[in-house]
Design a binder for these strands. Sequence first.
DNA 1: AGAGAATTGTTACGTTTTTTTCCAATTTGT
DNA 2: ACAAATTGGAAAAAAACGTAACAATTCTCT
Lengths: 230, 230
Amino acid sequence: MAKRILLVDDEPLIIKGLKYTLEQEGFETDSAADGEEALSKFFSGNYDFILLDVMLPKLDGITVCQRIREHSNVPIIMLTAKGEHIDKILGLEYGADDYMTKPFNILEVKARIKTIMRRASGTQPTEAKKVIRVHDMEINSVNRAVNLGGKDVRLTAKEFDLLQMFVNNRGKVFSREAMLETVWKYDYTGDARTVDVHIRRLREKIERNPAQPEFIFTKWGVGYYFTDKD
Amino acid sequence: MAKRILLVDDEPLIIKGLKYTLEQEGFETDSAADGEEALSKFFSGNYDFILLDVMLPKLDGITVCQRIREHSNVPIIMLTAKGEHIDKILGLEYGADDYMTKPFNILEVKARIKTIMRRASGTQPTEAKKVIRVHDMEINSVNRAVNLGGKDVRLTAKEFDLLQMFVNNRGKVFSREAMLETVWKYDYTGDARTVDVHIRRLREKIERNPAQPEFIFTKWGVGYYFTDKD
DNA sequence: AGAGAATTGTTACGTTTTTTTCCAATTTGT
DNA sequence: ACAAATTGGAAAAAAACGTAACAATTCTCT
């Protein structure tokens, strides 16, 4: 049974990004653009998780959080813009389970949701693997280290995030836009060519022969994908 | 069998933080928000440990402590805000085993609970090593002393906490935010640059050449990590 | 309680590293 | 072969880090 997530934010861009990626992850999502809509949806629907912006039209996020808490222990992550003096303490005091500062990227969101889901359900594992092996490549997400045929490979933060995204979705073709939404902050408005450059450098580091990749393949006219069977 | 801890405090934030961390450590927790609830929970439930705030609604912590002591020797740590008269508690006149001054940090809490649990039960579960050696560095967590190649190194409290956090999680990359949550007091909402400065000072003391660290490495774009294999 | 010392936190700035942009060369599919 | 898409090199821009100097806070000792 798919988990249902309620996304509450008045910026359509954020809703769109979250919606897209979380649905790709197998969640069902629904959204609300202001505090009143959030409450009405929450009480009529049945949600397993809530992502709740603090600044909302009509009814602010903290009030929404409190109202929900009067009736439910559903996990809530609060979203705050950087600089909003809703510091963590305030947010947690009203019963939120965690908070995130905007802008964030999808990888972060997924990690937080998984952590909190696990904590809430009591059952632990279902945890993403800490070390992943593909051919002779070993990817350690705790150390953020990559080893290729016995040799350590030094990746930058973005390169590692990209690789991680690929490896966790082997075979899946990502468009450049999808990659920008996953690995970059949601408000990033850069060029899609940027992705090409990062792919190139990632290949230079993990492919023995970047012109004939073993790991990261080009899907002409679409994007890139990672696979272990060539 | 998991140890059960009763948390008594009227500040939801503190309950929340303690609950989270102690459950991560494998304890079961339950909480009470005032003195009466504390007593009623204590006498109906079965707890292995109690964290008890002094200032409580309805019935103060000292009275609660006395009442419990009339019936049980369960270990009790009292929590006091700074400035409260704790001398009497210190003398253990009311039967508490230890006390802590708010605000505290998570490392402190875990350490105290473990110490007292061990003293109380005689046996000690999953105890962290007292003396850890990495290369020619020796870290003694009992007297909080560090010796490097035969020479004693004087670390401040924060520096030692940081080092301890690192050494107990070798290889793991910590973001600045994660460090602030682990090593700093729970109500600290300072800047991430602060972490950099402490890292620098720690490096100045334990690294022969801070520009080319042997122990504490920078993970660009992410944070810092400690490792024994360079 | 208060002076002085030590520790901790803040800010600003130079340096290094990463990220992005731009454009030409090359490859790919029809 | 042609057009569209990708790749590669290099320079510009941005971000992250290290350092130092200073401010604030806490601790210590009288």
